[in-house]
């Protein structure tokens, strides 16, 4: 979360707009997970200023095949309140 990272001054970070607990994306999405990891590893070299947060462009897309458990209301904002 950039909000937290900016307050804590983490040396280097990449951020993705994914639900909490799904940092690298969806279960079984090997390619998606690898993309984010490679971006993070690249950032180790490219970030030169301490505290830099690189926001990655990957976006969470809700699909019909997703497990309904992922959207448990205890941890997930009601769908109608999520900005498109």
């Amino acid at each position: 979360m950039p909000f937290v990272l900016e307050r804590l001054l983490v040396p280097r970070a990449v951020a993705v707009e994914h639900p909490f607990g799904f940092t690298l994306g969806k279960p079984g999405d090997r390619e998606g997970q690898m993309q984010i990891i490679r971006e993070a590893l690249k950032a180790v070299k490219t970030i030169e200023k301490p505290g830099t947060v690189i926001e990655l462009p990957y976006r969470w897309v809700r699909e019909e095949t997703d497990d309904p458990q992922w959207y448990d209301g205890k941890y997930f904002k009601p769908p109608e309140k999520i900005k498109k």
Partner: peptide, 23 residues
């Protein structure tokens, strides 16, 4: 304090041991 269903299905979502083994 987080939804654990994804990690339970595929630990690599949060703790990517398999992905780093591949690397």
């Amino acid at each position: 304090h987080y939804n654990k269903s994804g990690v339970r299905k595929d630990i690599n979502v949060l703790f990517p041991l398999d992905r780093f083994t591949e690397l």
